[in-house]
Amino acid sequence: MTAAGAAPASGPETNPRLDDLSRADVPFRTGHFQAYAPHDFHRIAYVEWGEADSPHVVICVHGLSRQGRDFDALGYRLAKLGYRVVCPDLPGRGLSGWLKDPELYGLPQYAADMAALIAHLRVQGKIDWVGTSLGGLTGMVLAAAARSPIRRMVINDIGPFLPWAPIREIGSRLRDAPRLHHNLASGESRLRTVLGAFGPLTDEQWRHIAKYSFHQVPNGGWRPHYDPGIGDAFRPGRVYSVSMWRDWDVITCPVLLLRGEHSDLLLASTADEMTRRGPPTRRVEIPQCGHAPALLDDEQLRIVTDWLGPAA
């Protein structure tokens, strides 16, 4: 690992400093719009990389308790290839609004909000989709729909069958997470423990993850960026195995499937089955990772950018 506070190496292949986006050599913007949930509107925030008029759009959607800034390194790389890359915060996360009714945190709402995002962006034609965990499930729902706008899809460590045991564990971590940390270093320390399955990360990468995982509160301390209500669906008695094979089997767009070598959520047997049925799928195993690869190191980024290729 790099020493805390050490400057990153420079050179044409090195990512820009993730905590100093003003130094990036590609356009970077933020935006938001109002989306609808029953009886209420809520804010959906996003960050956007690349030229706003590029017709080649990639939407990157994060996992359950994460947010769009997880994709900064990938957004930068894809923008350099000519893509317009949009990384939203799902409702209840990051800078997006919280839903008044926690029961609405689920795939129908997420899919509706992402469809609204596509409309808000005024995308002409098809898009590419990169989804980690929950973001992959959301992409599957949209890709399975008739007249789907998704042209190609990268699914990061998730599949159409989810065993109940790791789902229960994810719910337990959400419920047990401290509601307040005295400082950001304390929050980062917890993330290094609970997100250890992301794989080997540098100190700078952990600092980047932590920076956008907590919000400073006026009376002191740092709270997690997400609404605790997103964990309501994982309360005891509500956790069960999930099957979405019906969606998977009607998807037709090409898929790049990434699986963490030690993943307990995307079982090897499920990944095998995903290559035998449904859409044309290329499977890549990511070493030294569980659920889910962070998509921050050079090799993981190269796998995704090589598969998508230059915007054309």
Rank of each mutant, 00 (worst) to 15 (best):
V194L: 10
V250D: 03
D157S: 01
I167M: 13
F161C: 08
L257V: 01
H215S: 12
A165Y: 15
D232P: 00
L174M: 03
P166Y: 05
R246Y: 06
P224W: 01
I170K: 01
R238V: 03
W245H: 15
S243E: 11
P254H: 09
P200R: 07
P163T: 06
H225Q: 11
R259A: 03
G196N: 12
D227N: 00
R235S: 14
Y240H: 11
G229K: 05
L201T: 05
R259W: 01
D247A: 14
V194G: 08
W206E: 04
D247F: 12
G229R: 04
R238C: 14
I230G: 05
G159C: 13
D232V: 04
G221A: 02
M244V: 10
H225F: 02
S241A: 15
L162V: 14
L258F: 05
F161Q: 09
G221K: 00
L201D: 07
S213F: 05
T202N: 06
E188I: 00
H181C: 08
F214A: 07
C253W: 11
D227K: 01
F234M: 05
I170Y: 05
F198I: 12
L201G: 07
P228K: 03
S186V: 09
A233Y: 01
L162F: 09
L180S: 11
P160I: 08
G199I: 08
S186K: 11
R152I: 12
G231Q: 11
R235D: 13
Y212G: 13
Q205R: 15
D227R: 06
W222V: 00
G187R: 00
W248G: 14
G187D: 02
